[in-house]
Amino acid sequence: MTFRYDFAPTPFGDALAVFSEEGIVRFDLSEADDPSVPWLLEGVAQRLRAVPEADPGAAGELTALLDDYFDGAPVAFHEHLALDWRLAEGFTRHALQTIRTISWGETVSYGEIAVLAGHPGAARAVGTACRNTPFSIIVPVHRVVRSDGSPGHYGAHPERKRYLLDLESHR
């Protein structure tokens, strides 16, 4: 299996996009200021057991969708992009596939996702799935909130989650 990577611009900086023949494998809003840092790509390569090759332009369709999204259009990424789920297994995959169905501008609690995913009481596991998603923004984990309606975290950047929720609330 061949893996390719490119970078897609976001308001948070360039994000790493990794693709297989089956679709996008990973979209990573890096914790680093520079997503091209070797450790980020090494981590992805280790998980894939293959070194992705640079492919400038590979993220063209994704970039166009992101541009529309950040311009305020209600983009359902999974309707336009094939997702390769190999980096999400078990309950994490099931929770993320459930989260994928949350509509633009809507929010659902971690506990509600657990129930919808068939595992009542697994709200913390839903939080872990959100934190470990291989598909930042593409699978809208930012739409999953605490039971009191407060946003909660988004990795180390809760301000990004607030930004995304605010963006979607203006439509």
Rank of each mutant, 00 (worst) to 15 (best):
L81K: 03
P11G: 04
L41M: 07
E106F: 01
E61Y: 02
D67A: 09
D148Y: 09
E89A: 11
L116T: 06
K161H: 04
P56A: 06
L41W: 05
I102D: 14
E21V: 01
H170Y: 03
P158G: 07
V115G: 08
D71E: 07
L65C: 04
D28H: 12
E42Q: 12
Q97P: 06
G127W: 03
A45G: 09
P11V: 10
P151V: 11
L29V: 13
L16T: 15
V51L: 14
R162T: 05
F91A: 12
P74R: 05
D33Q: 05
V51I: 07
L165A: 05
L62N: 13
L41H: 13
T92R: 10
P38W: 10
A32M: 15
F135I: 00
A123V: 04
F3C: 04
T98G: 06
L66D: 03
A156R: 14
A50W: 03
A95N: 06
A64V: 08
V126K: 03
A17D: 07
S109V: 00
V139Q: 07
L48Y: 09
G149A: 12
E112P: 01
V141T: 14
A15V: 06
A73D: 12
D6Q: 09
H157K: 12
G152E: 13
R100Y: 02
A73P: 06
Y5H: 13
A117T: 10
V141E: 02
G57S: 04
H153R: 08
Q97C: 11
H157I: 11
D34V: 13
S30E: 15
P35C: 09
D68R: 12
R143H: 04
V145T: 03
R160L: 06
S147A: 11
A129S: 07
V25K: 01
G105H: 02
M1R: 03
W39F: 15
